[in-house]
């Protein structure tokens, strides 16, 4: 798997020194160069923790990360902090959810962008201007001289995308980049991110809870539930023929513009908190197809490309579906 930009192997994160609380459990995935990879799940499923563990941006010493995070054949988890510092912001960059909080309110946009290029001062102002222009901020001079509060949320997120791309990274981690924005602006920003990533052949790790965004922009997707990856595969396959009951439920819960609240299905129960995580299948308490045999650590099901962690295979779930009427 040497052709991957990033490959995370059996990464588990726990918090706390005395009684460590495991938040994610044996998460494995890999991202190819230029790929748009989505990590999707509900709040508290561990998707952001997984992303931040790649850059080791979790609080030390409380957070403990085990497993391997391979980036350019180096294990980021065992790297010296000074080496790690060289990778952050240059080879791997981040776009955060709240552009207003990601930028320094007392420095102009121009100053903050120049700072990103402080190692390579060659012609940097022109490079920044070129990127800002590409990002659709045509009034470059005004943007450079503006303070964050003078720009709108959408413009700030464009600035953050430029900031993430300036150093020509191999991987961008975009943690819910459009959640704080309006739908019309969301479409603009996602299009820009996809376009610029394609042009520069940068891989993107998109963290989101929005299945629509995954369907529209990502190539591959990993669905997380309660700290574990439950299903992974190419986006088309996962959305058109989901293997895991959770993915199926999640897709059915998305309102599709039909009339009547009965048209939206819900998954009964709630997402468990980390202290309530169980060792067997974590979705089983909410699963409609639960049986006694599910009380084990769920095995891998499916092929090399598209797989899920579930005791039952596709056929078994399909049969069960025909027998039991749908939920609600």
């Amino acid at each position: 798997m040497n052709d991957c930009v990033l490959s995370v192997r059996d990464s588990s994160v726990s918090f706390g020194l005395k009684n460590p609380l495991a938040v994610t459990d044996r998460v494995s995935f890999s991202i190819k160069p230029g790929e748009f990879f989505a990590l999707v799940g509900e709040s508290g499923c561990g998707k952001s923790v997984t992303a931040m563990s790649i850059l080791r941006l979790l609080p030390v010493p409380s957070a403990k990360i085990t497993g391997e995070v391979l980036f350019e054949n180096k294990n980021l988890l065992t790297l010296a902090l000074s080496e790690m510092q060289k990778i952050r912001g240059t080879s791997i960059t981040t776009i955060f959810q709240e552009p207003m909080q990601a930028l320094n309110p007392v420095l102009t946009i121009g100053k903050q962008l120049l700072e990103v290029l402080r190692k390579d001062k060659n012609n940097r102002e022109n490079r920044i201007k070129k990127y800002l222009h590409l990002a659709g901020l045509s009034d470059v001079e005004r943007v450079m001289n503006a303070y964050p509060h003078e720009l709108s949320g959408g413009m700030l997120q464009r600035v953050c995308i430029v900031m993430a791309l300036l150093n020509k990274p191999r991987l961008i981690i975009a943690d819910e980049p459009t959640t704080a924005l309006d739908v019309t602006v969301q479409a603009q920003i996602m299009d820009l991110l996809k376009k610029m990533a394609l042009e520069t052949h940068t891989a993107v790790l998109l963290i989101t809870h929005n299945m629509g965004l995954v369907a529209q922009y990502a190539n591959s997707v990993a669905v997380m539930y309660a700290g574990r990856i439950v299903e992974m595969g190419p986006v088309k396959k996962v959305i058109n023929s989901p293997l895991h009951p959770y993915t199926q439920g999640l897709l059915a819960a998305i309102p599709r513009g039909e009339r009547g609240v009965q048209s939206i299905q819900s998954i009964p129960g709630n997402v468990p908190a980390p202290k309530d995580f169980i060792d067997t299948c974590r979705f089983s308490p909410r699963c409609a197809y639960y049986e006694k045999k599910c009380d084990i650590y769920p095995p891998k099901q499916g092929d090399q490309e598209h797989y899920a962690f579930c005791v039952k295979d596709k056929l078994e779930i399909q049969n069960a579906k025909q027998k039991t009427p749908p939920l609600n």
């Binding site: 509900e42 997402v271 609600n328």
Partner: peptide
């Protein structure tokens, strides 16, 4: 979350 959104809508 989406999986519980429907519960609240149906309740309303």
């Amino acid at each position: 979350d989406v999986s519980v959104q429907a519960q609240v809508l149906q309740l309303l």
